[in-house]
Each structure stands twice: as structure tokens, then as C-alpha cells.
Design a protein around this nucleic acid. Structure first.
Lengths: 200, 200
DNA sequence: ACGTATTTCTGCAGTCCATGCAAAAATGCA
DNA sequence: TGCATTTTTGCATGGACTGCAGAAATACGT
């Protein structure tokens, strides 16, 4: 349960397989019928596990849409600390979140997750709520770098603003060509932030 | 159903009374027992209405904690348009959200709402989700002022960042002296934003 | 004051989410 | 093989939320 990616024993591999089966089943059903029309029972039926098992992996059915798993969160926290000390905090956030997006895009379910969110933008805030872990990791890392308290206004503002910028960028990307890379949008958002949100 | 504050007929006044009774009942129960331990039935019992009635006013029990009612949202949208044309967008957002906070603080339930959120910071994201209407009003007004599309990246980033700054400021305020005014925190957050989030 | 139209409230039935618990099954390990 | 640990499962439970239709309250014209 380290969060690392090694496929050690059979038990660990089966857990990963079950989690991914649930995710695949849920997302494909979401695309077929719409999120509201899919029940946990439907998902488990397609994934061939007991309905009770779903809640051993996710706390709510929308959680399968969150692209930031514990691996990504853990690596992001470390990534923040690995950045050169002289880089300004906003640049650190930009770099680190760009990498997080790359990692999320590597997941096999990424395209379908993105498509569900594109078709149901009303779910984005729920994803953001579920993305608190990523925000917390970012805030912790930045606080450490800056030698400030984790609950400092500046630290909290940096982290929450960076996550917001990422969300906004991804939304813009969703509305654009799906085959376009999301990085251009992220770069533009962080550029605007660094300019104090003045018009370009 | 205009959202204005005039107390026209008896029907309208009763509706306001019921809504406020539900809000008072819910918030006092939240403070007594904690949010999780309070059911909709408890709330309605104290407010002396049928359980079914609760959902004619709120879509979920946490919604009573959202300080931005439809009046405030409507006035905010107008307020954006009333700002001098030469003011930069971030300043407009700052001014308008400061006023929105003032309006929210004028509500009789404000102090208790704030106390519940102070004791249960894990609910803040849900409030933010429910604050989408305010964000949308801000985005619409800014888009109009700037002559841009409502879904433009710059417009979306401005609105979402401003709301995030407000949330962060309020969180900092919650952790500080409750009798302190929240405006200082808001001013500091917007100042940081306008400086491109560089350290001060 | 009365009758009618509109709006709101209420009770009921029903679906689904989400959790705790304990037994059963699967896996790891000596 | 036998025992310990982890995961899955079924069962029971409570609570959120919705739709619907009738009752009650309010508005309004006569």
C-alpha cells in the first residue's frame, strides 16, 4: 500500500485489476447512458464484482472520474521539493501540475474520463472537490519550500489558485479540439496568473 | 420570484419565513450535534414543517450553509456592470466580491453559518460548488465588460480565480479572530493576485 | 363575502447511496 | 499442508432525494 507502481504479489495485481475494471465499467456506462442513469449496481454487474465491493475502492460513484490517483499525488508532492530552489513558487506549481496532467493522461481510462467530463461539465466541481488531495500536496510542498506555515494565506492562495488554473485550462481544452494537447491552455493560464491577470 | 427584497404579499413573506426557519433550525442543530449527525427530519421537526418541504427550498442539507442567495447573486451581476469602465477586471472582481461578502454578513444567520464552517472546514468545498451561481454571474459580467465570450479562457480564469481568492481569504479569516473583519484578508489576497502571486 | 385559480404544503411510495458487521473466499507464508 | 492476513461478499440498516396527487393556504375578481 505504498502507492508505488510495482506489481509485486498476486494480491496487489488483483486489486489493481479490480479497481480498473470498476473504473472501465463505470466510465463506459456513463458514456452510454449518462452519469445519472447509472447505478452502482449496474457498474458492479458489468465489472463482475459484488455491489458492496465498489465502496471498498471508491467512496462515491463520481470518484471514478477523478484523474489524480494516490500515485500521482504522492509523486507531485515529491516533485515540488525536487524543483530548483531558485524557481519562483508559481513556476514550481506550473511545472508540477503539467507533469501531473502528463501522468493522468498516461492512464488507460484518461480519454474516456475526459470525454465524460466534456459531456457533463456540471461534474467538474465534484472532481475539484475530490482533487483536494492534490491541492494539499501542492500546498504542503510549497509551504516547505517557502519556510512558511501550511495554513498561511499566501501558501493557500498559491495552491488553490494553481489548482483552479489547471481546472480552467482543462475546461477550455475540453471545449476545444479533443486531440489538441492540454499544455497550451495550462501555459496560457499560468502566464496570465504571473502577469497579475491583466488582459493580453 | 424576482429575487428582490420587497415584502409584497403574504405568500412571499411566508416563503421567506419558512426558508429562514429551515436555515435557523439546520444551523443550530449543526452547531449542537455536528453536521453528520443531523437528519433532514430533525431539521424539519424543529422548523415545524413537513420533511418533504425541505426539498422545496434546498436541494441538499448542506445548502443551507451557502451564504450567497439569489438576491446577492443578482445584485453582484449588476454590480459588475455598474463599475467604471476604466477599472481593470481584477479590481472589479475585488470590489464586487467585497460587497457580496458585506451582503452575506448582513444576513441574520451569517455568524452561525461562519461558525459551522469554522468547525467543519471539510464542508468548504461543498459551499464552493454551490457558489457556482456567483462565479457564473461574475464571469458573465466580466465577459460583457471585456467584450469577450463567456467561455473564454481569460474570462473563466478571472472569475474562478477571484472566487478562489475569496474562499481562501474567508478560510484564513475563519482561522483568525472571529471578530476581525474579513476584508483585510480579501484585500491581501487580491493584492497578491495582482502582483502575479510573487512573495511579499 | 364568495367562488375560482394559483401556489405551496404534505404524505406516501419508491429508488438509490452509503456504511457496519460478520462470515466466506482468496492469498501469502512458514 | 496449515495458519495468518487480506479481500470479497451478503445482509441489514438508515438516510438522502424525487415524483406524484390530494389537501391546504393564498390571491383575486365579482
Amino acid at each position: 500500500m505504498t502507492g508505488a507502481e510495482e506489481a509485486c504479489g498476486l494480491r496487489e495485481r488483483k486489486k489493481r485489476a479490480t479497481r480498473q475494471a470498476l473504473q472501465r465499467a463505470a466510465i463506459s456506462l456513463f458514456l452510454e447512458r449518462g452519469v445519472e442513469a447509472v447505478t452502482v449496481e449496474d457498474i458492479c454487474s458489468r465489472a463482475e464484482v459484488s455491489p458492496r465491493t465498489f465502496f471498498n475502492y471508491f467512496t462515491a460513484k463520481e470518484e471514478v472520474l477523478v484523474p489524480w490517483n494516490s500515485d500521482i499525488v504522492a509523486r507531485t508532492a515529491q516533485h515540488v521539493r525536487d524543483q530548483p530552489a531558485e524557481h519562483p513558487p508559481l513556476r514550481v506549481a506550473h511545472t508540477v501540475l503539467a507533469t501531473a496532467i502528463d501522468s493522468a493522461m498516461a492512464a488507460p481510462t484518461w480519454r474516456d474520463q475526459a470525454q465524460v467530463l466534456r459531456e457533463h461539465p456540471e461534474l467538474m466541481p465534484r472532481v475539484v472537490v475530490a482533487s483536494r488531495a492534490l491541492e494539499a500536496a501542492l500546498a504542503d510542498g510549497l509551504a516547505q519550500r517557502l519556510g512558511r506555515d501550511r495554513e498561511d494565506l499566501y501558501v493557500g492562495l498559491l495552491a488553490s489558485t494553481a489548482i483552479t488554473a489547471m481546472r480552467t485550462a482543462i475546461q477550455s481544452w475540453h471545449r476545444a479540439d479533443p486531440d489538441l494537447a492540454p499544455h497550451g491552455f495550462l501555459d496560457r493560464a499560468f502566464d496570465l496568473l504571473s502577469r497579475g491577470l491583466t488582459a493580453d
